[in-house]
Amino acid sequence: MASRNPARPLSPHLQVYKWGPHMLVSILHRATGSGMATVGTGLLVWWLAAIAGGAESYATFRDVFTTDTGALNILGYVIGIGLTLSLFQHMMTGIRHFVLDTGAGYELRRNKTGALATMVASVALTIVFWLYLGIN
């Protein structure tokens, strides 16, 4: 019969495991995938409805994200950079997962380094992408 010791957790929990970058990357992968699907689908449907609605409807959609000069406003930057960062983070953790699926990178130090590398790479790629957009 099982022991009824209240000091012992029923299953491994946050008190047992130390928080590490590999846990954060796993959660970020799920969050970025869900976020891109939700926000991206909403924006796509709104954009398609705006196009189907005519010039006035499309102008309203465009004006939400841009200024009078056609440059992005604050909301446009927040959504654009957020989706770009989500895309690169999801892509980098996907590549990390692919490497782990081959059986490599399970050593503790390499796993931690790989998890940190995904976050650094996603931020760096986002910065490079938006700098490139600003140049052109």
Rank of each mutant, 00 (worst) to 15 (best):
2 A>E: 08
3 S>W: 01
4 R>Q: 13
6 P>V: 03
6 P>M: 14
6 P>H: 10
7 A>S: 15
7 A>C: 14
8 R>T: 15
9 P>W: 05
10 L>F: 03
11 S>T: 09
13 H>R: 08
13 H>N: 07
14 L>E: 06
14 L>A: 08
15 Q>H: 03
16 V>D: 14
16 V>Y: 10
17 Y>N: 10
17 Y>I: 03
19 W>Y: 12
19 W>Q: 12
19 W>R: 08
20 G>N: 14
23 M>Q: 09
25 V>R: 00
26 S>P: 10
31 A>T: 10
33 G>A: 03
33 G>E: 05
34 S>G: 15
35 G>V: 00
37 A>G: 11
38 T>K: 12
38 T>Q: 12
39 V>D: 03
39 V>H: 02
41 T>I: 03
44 L>R: 01
45 V>S: 02
46 W>P: 00
46 W>M: 08
46 W>C: 04
47 W>M: 13
48 L>G: 04
48 L>T: 02
51 I>N: 10
51 I>Y: 12
52 A>Q: 04
53 G>L: 00
55 A>Y: 08
56 E>G: 15
57 S>P: 11
57 S>W: 04
60 T>S: 13
60 T>R: 15
62 R>Q: 12
62 R>M: 04
62 R>T: 13
63 D>C: 02
63 D>E: 07
63 D>I: 10
64 V>S: 05
64 V>C: 00
64 V>I: 15
64 V>N: 04
65 F>L: 11
65 F>P: 02
66 T>Q: 10
68 D>R: 14
68 D>I: 10
68 D>V: 09
69 T>W: 09
70 G>M: 09
70 G>Q: 11
72 L>K: 06
72 L>G: 00
73 N>P: 05
74 I>W: 08
74 I>A: 02
75 L>F: 13
75 L>Y: 09
76 G>Q: 10
76 G>T: 09
77 Y>T: 07
77 Y>A: 08
79 I>G: 01
81 I>F: 02
82 G>L: 05
83 L>S: 13
83 L>Q: 06
84 T>Y: 00
84 T>V: 09
84 T>H: 07
85 L>S: 07
86 S>T: 02
87 L>H: 03
87 L>R: 07
88 F>H: 14
89 Q>A: 15
92 M>C: 11
92 M>Y: 04
93 T>F: 13
94 G>I: 11
95 I>N: 07
96 R>Q: 10
96 R>K: 12
98 F>M: 15
98 F>S: 13
99 V>K: 04
100 L>D: 00
102 T>D: 05
102 T>F: 01
103 G>H: 10
103 G>R: 09
103 G>K: 09
103 G>P: 05
106 Y>A: 01
106 Y>P: 05
106 Y>T: 09
108 L>H: 10
108 L>R: 09
110 R>E: 12
112 K>H: 13
112 K>T: 08
112 K>F: 08
114 G>C: 04
116 L>R: 11
116 L>E: 07
118 T>V: 13
118 T>L: 01
118 T>K: 03
118 T>Q: 04
119 M>F: 04
121 A>M: 13
121 A>P: 05
124 A>W: 12
124 A>Q: 08
124 A>L: 14
127 I>M: 13
127 I>W: 00
128 V>G: 07
128 V>E: 01
128 V>N: 06
130 W>D: 02
132 Y>R: 07
132 Y>D: 00
133 L>I: 08
133 L>D: 06
134 G>M: 11
136 N>G: 15
136 N>A: 09
